[in-house]
Amino acid sequence: MCTTCGCGGHAALIGGKAMRREARKHGGAVAYRAPAGQAAGEAAHDTAQARIIRVERDILAKNDALAAVNRALFASRNILALNLVSSPGSGKTTLLVRTLRALKEKFPLAVIEGDQQTDNDAERIRATGVEAIQINTGKGCHLDALMVEQAMQQIALPQGGVLFIENVGNLVCPAAFDLGEAAKVAMLSVTEGEDKPLKYPDMFAAAGVVLLNKVDLLPYLDFDVPLCIEYMRRINPGIRVILTSATSGAGMDEWLEWLESGMKQLAAREEAK
């Protein structure tokens, strides 16, 4: 327990015990302060000489402001922007390739690909005839709104169509960074374990729809689909879940229908303007 305010903290646990960082090289242990109005006297510290500036600004304010610029651009060009998120290897690129092949005669399309290294995924997308730009984040674990803004300057925007942004394969960090998308499309594959929504709740909380992928492999696995969906709904009670196989094509109709209804909503909003 934290000794400053008596809160439980939420430090990392190792074997059920709070992680200690006593001998850290940089700085000391986390100094917790009691929330205002709760043992405020105890939280008092020497402020006699210094000035206190009340900032009250979100840490992600800069990213959120850039995301708002991206979102306004998408709205002005009537573009449905989707942020595809999942752990590495769940099948995002394979599903995307299949989706692009199905939609490319119907709508203008473009793809922004995010990976730490290589141009491989953008190459796979370009093989479908759809324009793609690769972002390599280097050491970075997620895309941010500025990367997307700059990537958009290098491609023809799919006016009246869909921009797919395939995030870095990571079920943790991309949850926090708004890119200006209409929705996050989270993907989970049935080879991953049905309790992943509980293990990585932030991503499932942030998602607008979940694709449960690789369902063609279900006969060979112990994966419990209803239990997995129940776990997702513990995190995000109203979440829509679509069962897909990017390999066999199962569930693609339902996924494409979801996409087209998104396009129709955009078109309706355009007419209402």
């Binding site: 000489q49 210094a50 206190i52 500036i53 009340r54 009250e56 840490i59 992600l60």
Partner: peptide, 19 residues
């Protein structure tokens, strides 16, 4: 489990002590 989080999601810079 029909619980929709509506608080405790903040991450912000509250205040600065400056000179």
């Amino acid at each position: 489990y029909q619980v929709q989080p509506n608080g405790g999601m903040e991450m912000k810079v509250k205040e600065l002590e400056v000179e």
